[in-house]
């Protein structure tokens, strides 16, 4: 395991931020920590990094107890914080050099790593630019370059794509996958379920300081009753037809509102064909049809009764 957290408790006064929080990240994983804002993701990261005091529990990183002066462990970790943390008065290259220099004392090796980090994040055209002249996406890329330039074994990324345009977000996610392919273990936190689904090999869903579900995305989705969601645009549907649709196999729930029929199915195959066949048999004309597999939001919704983005 590269990260082992057990029974971590962190309180802010009367409020409990982490409630017996457990986490195990295996070597080579891209581990996603998913949860709404305020669920305790960043607090957990700050405890793991030995920035925050905690009330109870234990944290081991790369096989060693994590303490503020565990410099040998820190040397092997790269961190990309939620807020961009760079020197405003240094250029892109100077910033990466500074932060890489905190980990790599040898100048020659450092210079090589800096160039690699610049190439990796696609900042070649901006090496002499100061951060205030960079766009939001480029700034995030610089933030990442400063965190990973020293080629760590473990990278912790805390919401690295907040306020980033879709293209930059896509570049960042692809970069993380590349790092993972090169052997780096990753702990990735986000409240964007699409990102977590896209890149993570294992996912923990957090709410109110606790892990409420853990597994691969397939495992998580199989935990819930809801499977496929079918939406059909259809006008003037009589109530008796709704009853016949409810009677179809695997149909869990049916809603009809504003000329839109929503059918929630539990597992099973060919649900869409069954529904369309039934509508044709009854000579009902319909418009566009959508079929959506279950999402992590559905998982979160079913477990907590809340939307992930509430």
């Amino acid at each position: 395991m590269v990260i082992e957290v057990s029974n971590l408790v962190k309180r802010y006064g009367d409020r409990i931020a982490l409630d017996h929080f457990n986490l195990n990240v295996a070597k080579g994983e891209i581990f996603g920590l998913l949860g709404p804002n305020g669920s305790g993701k960043t607090t957990a990261i700050n405890c793991i990094l030995a920035l925050l005091k905690y009330d109870k529990g234990s944290i081991r990183v790369l096989g060693t107890d994590m303490t503020p002066d565990a410099y040998e462990v820190k040397r092997r970790i790269g961190v990309v914080m939620q807020n961009v943390a760079v020197f405003e008065d240094l250029t892109v290259q100077e910033n990466i050099q500074y932060f890489c220099g905190l980990y790599i004392p040898e100048k020659q090796k450092r210079d090589t790593l800096v160039q690699e980090a610049i190439a990796f994040t696609g900042l070649e055209d901006y090496v002499k630019t100061k951060p205030k002249k960079l766009s939001g996406g480029l700034l995030r890329r610089l933030n990442i370059a400063c965190g990973i330039a020293h080629k760590p074994q473990l990278i912790i990324l805390d919401e690295p794509t907040v306020a980033v345009d879709p293209q930059s977000r896509s570049n960042i996610l692809e970069g993380i996958r590349r790092l993972n392919r090169e052997g780096t273990s990753v702990l990735y936190t986000s409240h964007y379920m699409e990102e977590i689904e896209q890149i993570c090999t294992k996912i923990a869903i957090m709410d109110q300081g606790r892990v409420i579900a853990l597994g691969t995305k397939e495992e998580l989705k199989s935990m819930i009753k809801t499977g496929e969601k079918i939406s059909v645009e259809i006008q003037g549907l009589a109530p008796e037809y709704l009853a016949s649709i409810r009677a179809l196999p695997h149909v869990e729930r049916v809603q009809y509102d504003k000329d839109r029929l929503e059918i929630h199915c539990s597992g099973g195959r060919h649900n869409l064909i069954e529904v369309l066949h039934d509508l044709s048999e009854k000579n009902l004309s319909f418009g566009r049809v959508y079929s959506e597999p279950p999402t992590l939001n559905d998982v979160f919704l079913e477990i907590t009764g809340k939307q992930l983005r509430d």
């Binding site: 002066d69 410099y71 040998e72 040397r75 914080m81 807020n83 943390a85 905190l102 980990y103 400063c146």
Partner: peptide
Amino acid sequence: QANLTPLGARRSIAPAP
């Protein structure tokens, strides 16, 4: 200082005393 600026936080997690 990590509790004052993000830069302070980043420098606090580096392996430098």
